[in-house]
Design a protein around this nucleic acid. Sequence first.
DNA 1: ATGCCATGCTCCGCATGA
Length: 266
Amino acid sequence: MRIATWNVNSINARLPTVLQWFEEAAPDVACLQEIKCVDEKFPREAFERLGYNVETHGQKSYNGVALLSKSPMEDVRKGLPGADGAGADGEADDHARYIEALISGPRPVRVGGLYLPNGNPVGTAKFTYKLDWMARLNAHARALLAFEEPLVLCGDYNVIPEPEDADKPEGWLDDALFQPESRGAFRALKNLGLTDAYMQMNGAPGGYTFWDYQAGAWPRNHGIRIDHHLLSAQAADRLTGVEICRDVRGWEKPSDHVPVVVTLDL
DNA sequence: ATGCCATGCTCCGCATGA
């Protein structure tokens, strides 16, 4: 069972590139982020032709997540608990950033796909929203872990966990992705009992998943590792591989993120 | 010190991203 995450930066602007990768990589499950469209404008048929069941939690212009699976999905959830209620400032949270389903099969696995808020600039409501969202994710992860089943929470976490996860960490010191509060909230997630799949399987510095479009970040390899798979113990026990599809960043009309795929022996 | 590049919409300039 191969489970992918990929922030595609607009599914409709990226469709030929995304389909090319799906035909080559053929993941069993894929979580997409930043589809940047409402459900009705998601190119559902293109993925159904490749054999996928499609669930979307879309939004106009910004954010939006999708979950694709070759096996049928059950228990589909769109939005974190509390996410469609009130945020810390009392305003309704209408960001489409989380989708989850139980992937059926001989050994079911629950997969949550997430697009964690960027949080820049630090010191604004955007940063407190990021931390508030991470607290809600923590509470939901805690509830899911109580099932003691294979669980994968993957997506664009918008957190650089450690200095080794950036080519130029000094350049990120003032950024929301590398604040002590952001890193601490990510660490708190792991401390619930979740395993960072990349660190378990490889852990070598330089496993970047994002390179900015600007300032020649890709040719200079000024990357960061911010797309992660966090695994429950029951999933981590069966983890056999992690692949960062780095070459996709060099394709024509690329996303600024690349796909990351974990393999579970389920 | 700023913008660089890319996206979608309010569409020819703005907001957002990381």
